[in-house]
Each structure stands twice: as C-alpha cells, then as structure tokens.
Design a binder for these strands. Sequence first.
DNA 1: CATTAAACGGACCGCGCGGTCAACTTGGTA
DNA 2: TACCAAGTTGACCGCGCGGTCCGTTTAATG
Lengths: 200, 200
Amino acid sequence: MTAAARPPRADAVRNRRLLLAAAADEFAEHGLDASVADIARRAGVGKGTVFRHFATKDDLVAAILTDRMDELHHRGEELLAAADAAAALHEFLTAAAGQRQERDLSFLAEAAGSMPEVAAARDRMTGTIDRIVDRAREEGVLRADITGTDVFLLMCAPNYIAGYVPDASPDLWRRYLGVILDGLRPEGARPLPAEAPTLA
Amino acid sequence: MTAAARPPRADAVRNRRLLLAAAADEFAEHGLDASVADIARRAGVGKGTVFRHFATKDDLVAAILTDRMDELHHRGEELLAAADAAAALHEFLTAAAGQRQERDLSFLAEAAGSMPEVAAARDRMTGTIDRIVDRAREEGVLRADITGTDVFLLMCAPNYIAGYVPDASPDLWRRYLGVILDGLRPEGARPLPAEAPTLA
DNA sequence: CATTAAACGGACCGCGCGGTCAACTTGGTA
DNA sequence: TACCAAGTTGACCGCGCGGTCCGTTTAATG
C-alpha cells in the first residue's frame, strides 16, 4: 500500500523534463556513448542530478524508449479509430519511420530493450500493431502470410537502409518504405522461405 | 620506388592471421566495444603485438571490413560469369545476408567506413553490384526504378530486421529477403516517393 | 653457429567514463 | 517567516580503455 507520497517539487519536475530532452538530443548526436556528464551540461544541471532522477544510465535510456514507444502506440490507436485498413497500415509505418528520421534512437533498444518497463511499452505498441495488421489482412490489402510481428520488425528497416547514405535526402526512407510496402501487397506474393517469428 | 623489402617473418604472418580471426570473433560477440586486450588474449599474443600489426584499433577494424567486402566482390564476379540475371541477383543478396548471418560485423562500418582502404573495397564491391543490377533490369526481372546503390543499401536489411528477434531461427533473414525481393519485382510496382541516392 | 634485425610481451601511462557522497540550496508548508 | 525534507551540486573514486615503450626472444641469413 503506497501511502500518498507528497508530490514532487516543481524544479524536480522541470529538471526531469529537461534531462529527458537533453539526453535524447545527446544520444541522437553521439550514439549510446554520449556521456552522462555531457547530458547534464546540456540540460543545465549538475551530474549528480541525473543520478537522482535515473539511478543508472540504463534507466535513463529506458525512460526515453518508453516515451517513444507509447507515442507510437497512441498514434496507432488513433489510426484504428479513424483510418481505413490500408491507410492505417501505411500511416502507421510512415509515423514510425518519421519519428526515427527526426531522431534515430533505435540503438538504445540494445542497451535497455530487456528492461521490464521497456518490454511493457513494447507490448502495448505491438498489441496495437497486431490489430492494425489483422484488419489489413482481413480486408485483403495485406498478403496473407504476414503477421503483426513481421510488420513490427519491418517497421524500422527503411531508416536503417537510408542511414547508410551520408547527406541523404531526409525523405530517402520513403523510397525503401515504398519497396517494402510493394513487397507486402497480396498481388504477386511468392511464398516466404521461413516461418513467421514470435517475440519471447 | 619501394625497394624490395625483405618478406615478413613466418611468425608475423601467422600472428596477423590469428589476430584478424580473433578480432572478428570478439567483435561479433561483444560489438565494437570488444577490447584490444581481449582480442590479443584470444589470439594468444601480447597486446603490443596487436599494435605492431595494426597501428590503431580502427586500422584493425578496417582490415576486417576490407576482407569481407572483397569476399562479396569476388562472389559477385563469379555469379556474373555463371548465373542468369535473376539468379545472380538473388544469389548475391543471399550470399551477402549469409555472410552477415554467420557473423554480424556491420557495425564496424560506422567506426571505419570512411577510411580510404575501406572505401576502396566498397567501391570494388558496388561496381560489381552495379553490373549485376543493370543486367537484371535490362532483362526485365527487376523493376526499372531500382539502382545498384539501392540494392547495395537493401542488401543488409534482412539481417538487421531478423536481428531484433532473440533466439530467432538462423534462417529468419530469408523471410525478409523474400519480402524485399517481392518488392523489387517489376510486376505491380508503384512509383517510389523519393529519388535514388548516390554514395559520395 | 654467430649475428642481427624483426617481432614479441606485458608493465605502464593518461584519460574519460559511470557512479557516489556530503555539504549546500530551495520550494512548499504551517 | 521559520523550518526542513526534497533537491542540487561538483569534487571525487575506481576502473578499464586505447596506446606506448623497452627489455627479451626468435626467425632468417651467410
């Protein structure tokens, strides 16, 4: 029974927000090796404050990942309510790639992907993806042998591919999303040579 | 005019081979952060010996990358000589993904991708890819709007996608290569929303 | 064999990292 | 306004890294 703890102080709330933003920027610029000291400097706080809010660097990473996955989760729910099956799939993949184009933080998953709070956020998101994918398959706008897990895995590929091109157009990922979407259509699909995976 | 230097000693040749193999294993297991000390231990030599053969850690990375790219380059040349256009494209992509499935060292490119020797090896390889792709396009087994650079970029995606699945079947990448190959066929291709990139 | 330059090994160096701590400051409350 | 727990700070710690250096070993040569 957690007694009603007194609410956090205003400066603590502000600093937490500043830290998450600074950390996301710093990670995007320098990868996972961005140092806690630099993150603190960018947020305009002392290094000790970082560790007051996030016990370890991995906890900080986990908080960023969780936020981003929940963002996509909510976007997916909106699309399920508003868009038709084909458009929802297309828009969701576009939203996911767009988020990553703005700031590529995918490598953070490698550091904190197995933490429980991150896994929970991922499950929320994959649940939504499953619903989008099932609807698309049932309406015949997606090939029959593709699962929600497949789409979850394919989701990040366009940015990854475009990321190899230095000074690429910021829209290059759309090109490879186009190729993948063509590969996901039911017309002309050839049987896939390996079974659909499941996560954990 | 480099005067004929005396050939390297037998133990130096042997140690260089041992080091490259040990480094590839160590990088595959621990990523770019594999330490030079561990690599030396695995090769059964002292740490100083590593730096005698490779002035910096990046030079070691570059040597590994160069070897692997040249391997694919030669495989591509074989396929150009022996296989028909569609099979050559299919087989080349399979070979590239197979190499990476065995040992994923793609992240090394991020550390040494801009070194001249690595760039030269990459150019040799992309030259071969261009020939494979041009032939496939001309014979109508590849959609018209796809370039050699596109294929080079798409080449690594199947492993990347499958890499997100812990304990995945070692053949899972074939599934996503299948999706991409379907997306590369001329039949039913929709116009791509961004122009083909060029590398440097 | 004797000779010698090439190759080897591992103690050593400076650095920057993630994380700790105790002295200090400050927002909220009665 | 007086109080105090919550919050902040930056000097500090131990560690493991990439890279250096030099005394020792060894493969090649005539």
